[in-house]
Structures are given as structure tokens and as C-alpha cells.
Amino acid sequence: MQQVIEGYRQVAPAMRAEGDTVVLDANGVYYQQLNEAIRSAVSAGARNIRIENANGQRYIGAGLRARDLRIEVHGTAGNDLASFMDGPTVEVFGNAQDGVGNTMASGKVVVHGDAGDVLGYGMRGGRVYVRGDVGYRVGIHMKAYESLVPVVVCGGKARDFFGEYMAGGVLVLLGMNTQFPGDPIAGSFLGTGMHGGVIYVRGDVEPWQCGKEVGVAEASDADMAELRPILEDYCAALGLDLDEVLAQPFTRIVPVSHRPYGKLYAYL
């Protein structure tokens, strides 16, 4: 008995092989069947998967742990793309929606279009590269531990609460490939509650945009030496010109304290 949920059919996606690539046609297929097909292909040994006609299916790549796995998504990837993912590379030729890289452990996500809200929430490792704009609350509560250092680079502009509660990692905002040329590069409350990690913004940010927990300064040569290999990798992944990206000075935003609320309490 075939059921239709929110316009999606509960059927397995059409599958074919092209060389060593498994191709899945996601057109109108419900996310559970699509993701089940992805997991089955991975268990059967597939290491290259191409999803065609993606139209908003959620959780693509969620919880997958194969390090040498590559997933291409053609179309629009749905919410929570690559959430809890540990290892694979996911490349989206189109836009991604909310929750990209939610609590991601490692791996790489490349989005050739725009992405939505809460990108990289709680992310603890791996990289997310977005060519265009991103939404609200991006990079919230990213955290680093020893060799695990998450990196998020957004090529366009961001809305409010960029890097809120950030506890570790590197968050970069370029403001270049944007649909909103008249808007400021980031919204308000940038880095509010930040207590670890670093945010780089290409160009300037106004003091009113930032949370009170951060300090803002122009990036030094040493900072740029840290940032340059990240931007090289980003440009290579998206086919962008590194010189153009580096043509403007960057602003570095770091927390003033690792314990922003350390003095808030009196013990009874």
C-alpha cells in the first residue's frame, strides 16, 4: 500500500549504477525511503552516491560514518543535511535548507547555493562551505576539542545571532556572493555569549552588531596565516578566486572570556 506524506511517495527511489557511482532518483520520494536506500547502498559497499532531483528531503547523510564516502546532491537538500555525520563528504549542487551540519562530528559539506538557519549548530569537527547567503543563528554553539576543530565558511551574508554561544572552531563570513547587496554583512547579536573559537569577517562589522562578550580587531598577519589555508580549500572546493577573497582586510572576533558567566553566581 503506497502512502503519500506531504506530497512525497513512500516508495524506494529508482536506483542505477554509473561506473562505481550509485545514482538515486529522489523525485517525489519520501525522505525515509531515500535515506534507507542511501544506507543500504553504503552497507553494500558503495562509496560514490549521486542523488538526482532532490526536492527538500530531510536528513541526507544523517549519522553516516564512512570516511571515504562521497554523496552528491543535485537539487535542493532538505533540513538537517549531514546532521550527526562523521566522515563523509556531501556536495550540494543547489541550495540547502535549515540545520546543515547539525552536531556534525567530521567530514565535509559543500553547498554551491545558499543555506538556511542554524547551520553548524553544536558542530564539533569537519567543514561546511557555503557559496552564498546563510540564515539566522549560524554557527551557534560550535565547539572544539583537541584535534577536532570545526570550520564553517559562508560566502554570502548572514542574519542575526551569527556565532552565538560559540565555544570553539572557526567561523568565516565573506559577504561576497549575496542576494542582498544592500544589507549589512551580518545581522545583530554577532557572537553573543561567545566563549571560545574565532570568527573572521571579510571587511568591517559595526559595534552595534556584536554581542558584549566579544572583542573586535583587524586580523593580524598571524591570523591571516591561520585563515589562508582555510580560504584556499574553500575556493578550491567552490571554484572561486582566492585573490579576490583576500582583496579586503578581515576582522577578527574573539571572546573576551572563556567563562562569560563565571562571576554570575553566589553560592548558598
Binding site: 535549515d98 540545520g99 547539525n102 542554524v118 549548530y121 564539533r124 543563528r137 551557534i140 554553539h141 565547539k143 572544539a144 576539542y145 577536532l148 552565538e164 554561544y165 565555544a167 570553539g168 555569549g193 566563549h195 571560545g196 572563556h258 567563562r259 562569560p260 558567566y261 563565571g262
Partner: peptide, 19 residues
């Protein structure tokens, strides 16, 4: 190491889940 955060920093759980 169990929480996967650096030693000595506050472990802050925000009031809401931001997603």
C-alpha cells in the same frame, strides 16, 4: 574528554535548543 570540550571552560547549555 567525555563532553568533548576543553578543560577549564564553562560548559554552557543554552536555555532552548536553537533548532
Amino acid at each position: 574528554s567525555t563532553r568533548m570540550i576543553p578543560q577549564g571552560t564553562d560548559a554552557i547549555s543554552p536555555a532552548p535548543h536553537h533548532d
